[in-house]
Simulated assay, not measured.
Amino acid sequence: MKCLLLAASALLFVAPLAFAGSLPFSSAKTAKGAVLADAKGMTLYIYDKDSKGLSNCYGDCAEDWPPFLAKAGAEPSGPYALVTRKDGQKQWAYNGMPLYFWEDDTARGQATGDGVAGVWHVVRSTTQASSSGGGSW
């Protein structure tokens, strides 16, 4: 009976950790406020020239703004979806909008791509949302 209780207790601690790691998202504190980030804390961006479920950033654009590609077996959940790129790779999206990194962000918490060319925006938390673009989460 004691072994059974220990095994059950171990499952209670392991299961939440496994679930928490299933989506590669976190938040990062930046000069722009709290923003959506990958699991390493790198800021994620959306592109005004995309539409829900469709990326329009390829070639030179994708070199400057690398898409946030999903690992094999990734599963969407809630507002986090997967879109298929032209080459068949899966890219993470938030509320249908494909997500990207900015090549000039080199450390956790940087958000230097917000507002670039007037079409790139961080995804801000609800309390940090502004009219200058970006979503809320």
Score class of each variant (00 low, 15 high):
Tyr45Lys: 12
Tyr45Pro: 12
Ile46Ser: 12
Ile46Gly: 05
Tyr47Asp: 02
Asp48Val: 09
Lys49Cys: 12
Asp50Ser: 12
Asp50Trp: 05
Ser51Gln: 15
Lys52Phe: 11
Lys52Met: 12
Lys52Glu: 13
Gly53Leu: 09
Leu54Ile: 15
Asn56Gln: 09
Cys57Val: 06
Tyr58His: 13
Tyr58Glu: 09
Tyr58Lys: 10
Gly59Trp: 00
Gly59Ile: 00
Asp60Ala: 12
Cys61Lys: 04
Ala62Val: 04
Ala62Asn: 05
Ala62Gln: 04
Asp64Met: 02
Asp64Arg: 01
Trp65Asn: 05
Trp65Pro: 06
Trp65Glu: 04
Trp65Tyr: 10
Pro66Asp: 03
Pro66Cys: 08
Pro67Asp: 05
Pro67Tyr: 04
Phe68Pro: 03
Leu69Thr: 09
Ala70Val: 07
Ala70Gln: 05
Lys71Ser: 15
Gly73Asp: 01
Gly73Pro: 01
Ala74Ser: 15
Ala74Asp: 11
Ser77Phe: 03
Ser77Ile: 00
Gly78Tyr: 03
Tyr80Cys: 01
Ala81Glu: 15
Ala81Lys: 15
Ala81Gln: 15
Leu82His: 11
Thr84Trp: 07
Arg85Asp: 09
Lys86Thr: 11
Asp87Asn: 13
Gly88Ser: 08
Gln89Ser: 15
Lys90Val: 00
Lys90Leu: 01
Lys90His: 00
Lys90Asp: 00
Trp92Arg: 04
Ala93Cys: 07
Ala93Ser: 14
Ala93Tyr: 06
Tyr94Asp: 03
Tyr94Val: 02
Asn95Thr: 14
Gly96Ser: 07
Met97Glu: 13
Pro98Asp: 05
Tyr100Ala: 06
Tyr100Glu: 03
Phe101Asp: 03
Glu103Val: 06
Glu103Met: 01
Thr106Ile: 05
Ala107Trp: 00
Arg108Pro: 01
Arg108Leu: 03
Gln110Trp: 02
Gln110Leu: 02
Ala111Lys: 07
Ala111Pro: 02
Thr112Lys: 10
Thr112Val: 09
Gly113Ser: 12
Gly113Ile: 11
Gly113Trp: 10
Gly115Met: 08
Gly115Arg: 08
Gly115His: 10
Val116Trp: 13
Ala117Pro: 03
Gly118Lys: 07
Val119Ala: 11
Val119Trp: 07
Trp120Tyr: 10
Trp120His: 13
Val122Tyr: 09
Val122His: 09
Val123Trp: 14
Val123Leu: 14
Val123Gly: 07
Arg124Val: 00
Arg124Gly: 02
Ser125Thr: 14
Ser125His: 10
Ser125Leu: 11
Thr127Asn: 13
Gln128Cys: 00
Gln128Ser: 04
Ser130Asn: 08
Ser130Gln: 01
Ser131Pro: 02
Ser132Ile: 02
Ser132Thr: 06
Gly133Pro: 13
